[in-house]
Design a protein around this nucleic acid. Sequence first.
DNA 1: CCTTAAATTGGGAATGTTCCCAATAATAAA
DNA 2: TTTATTATTGGGAACATTCCCAATTTAAGG
Lengths: 337, 337
Amino acid sequence: MKRHQTTIVDIARKLNLSKSTVSRVLTGHPSVSEKTRRAVMELAEQLDYQRNMLSVSLLNKKSNTIGIIVPEFMSSYFPQVIMGAQEVAAEMGYNTIICHSNEHYETEVANTRLMLANQVDGLLVSLTKETRNFDHLKIFERKGIPIVFFNRVCDEMDVPKVVVDDYEGAFRAVEHLIKRKKKRIAHLAGPDSLLISVKRLRGYRDALKKYNIPIDEELIIPYDLTIAKVKIYVNHLLRLSNPPDAIFAINDPTAIEALQIVKKKGLEVPKDIAIVGFSNDLASGLIDPALTTVSQPVKEMGQTAAQLLIDQINRDVSEWKTIIRVLKTELIVRKSS
Amino acid sequence: MKRHQTTIVDIARKLNLSKSTVSRVLTGHPSVSEKTRRAVMELAEQLDYQRNMLSVSLLNKKSNTIGIIVPEFMSSYFPQVIMGAQEVAAEMGYNTIICHSNEHYETEVANTRLMLANQVDGLLVSLTKETRNFDHLKIFERKGIPIVFFNRVCDEMDVPKVVVDDYEGAFRAVEHLIKRKKKRIAHLAGPDSLLISVKRLRGYRDALKKYNIPIDEELIIPYDLTIAKVKIYVNHLLRLSNPPDAIFAINDPTAIEALQIVKKKGLEVPKDIAIVGFSNDLASGLIDPALTTVSQPVKEMGQTAAQLLIDQINRDVSEWKTIIRVLKTELIVRKSS
DNA sequence: CCTTAAATTGGGAATGTTCCCAATAATAAA
DNA sequence: TTTATTATTGGGAACATTCCCAATTTAAGG
């Protein structure tokens, strides 16, 4: 009726051929005469023929599509990872369906449903801060659809993961602050549901330990990454009887927010209080003073993740690997410390 | 074989039912006995049954998927638009396939092919700066697949468009600079292939005209939005015998880059040279001095575009509208002017 | 207990492709 | 010219689902 797309049968009918022959031409099969080949090609072009991938996917039981689920979309971090992943995926002939969970567990579950329904051949996931139950992801394992985690990974599933060395990054960041003669270094930490929080916290603790600086639990504040709450915690820290002279933040948005607040209070950065972030977001080089931060190879993370995923897809379930790829971080020292 | 997903037939066989009955249960059709309904539901749950949307889409000739093509993914602008669009789309039961063209015409064409092959029900597009030929998009019109443009729109196609009032935004921005006693206002303009460039330039010109400030063509520099080139142009402007005392930039990334360069030269912003951007990117409030800019309702743009698109999808081709929705901008005055 | 109506179930076509196997047409050899 | 061989083409199943129509079962009414 009205919205009829040209199909292989339309072409076949107009040329008095069978759909088999037309299909052969369009898929580049050799055993077809030059004359009919040309005729089919011409008509296909003329009718704007486009292969219907839905039917191809249905037939092959392979959609050539991978899903990507990320927790948020605001900072420059995940868009960059996605770009990296899409680059590799496209090169290998895969489409991508992208969903963001808005940091909500429920949304994440809904997203995985969508991915299943759309028959993705594999899934790239970075978890929500709320996610503590992984049943919705284990379904993929059971169904033989490979998963690869990146950045926010799941500890209790044996699948490939791509992370940066959060421990070492945090360790170096704090060490750097210590070398800048900071004695009371606070840590605005992430929720302990996230492995990255735990690892960065561990790096923080170990750096202090190494330099024999007493760990003051009062200076460690885990929070749920809701940016608006940073103000409360920074104010709290500054009002302590023995306030910190440095803040190591779990990520750049947190660090940037903290920096703004500290500046507004009239404190001087880094003299009165130094600030260090994590991730090297686009904005961190622009603010004043520029933010010292631990940079991650963001695009590379996406590329590696996609690469690992496609490797799994092309492998038999019985040969699935569980590599954990740890990428290097780099401390970028700027004015804020 | 190995990667077999549970189908409706599997369930039917195990329960000695026909696939019709199972389908009825799963789609919530009323005429089925409570007993079998429960049995089917239970088994479906137990086997992690997931409806195969590929086959449903194929049968209905409707994929419930819309495509989104954006030119880039780096600034916070497009991710935010996408979030807005996805929000509305998800609510109306549509999935999204996102592609970015990397500002390359060729990639944009490839992306449209992908969208066609995947049978999207509609397409949301923001053009590449290179795109001057629209054949790849006109195919959609011919095939009865609605398109909606946003931000970077196409003048020669009669389809719905969502834009902001670029003319007025630019006009107000320049007027603001004039009221700040700036006499020689430069404009780092975009390529004239983009309508937004043309309209913003027109706003710039008209504002100057209104206040009887002579237009110096030397101060108008159209460029291709390659951020690295900003340095060349700013240096050029500053070396003029009669250099500008203000710069109105086509967008925020450009303005931010210009600001950094000007600051590095030791000039004072806004005293020596004021700077105004366009779009209110995330970073613009963070830099020092904070950037005066024209803010756009970014998320709303995505929402509106998705809304218009889905309206078109649900309409007969003969009743397609060609509304142009113009959203309001707002001048946000900060320290840089 | 039989008839009739209603409730529940099954059969099969259709969606657009691909691919195997069989059938036909064209060419070469005898 | 006939047969053998090869080059080209056609037929039909399969993929997972929905939906119409027909068949069967169950319940209700006499």
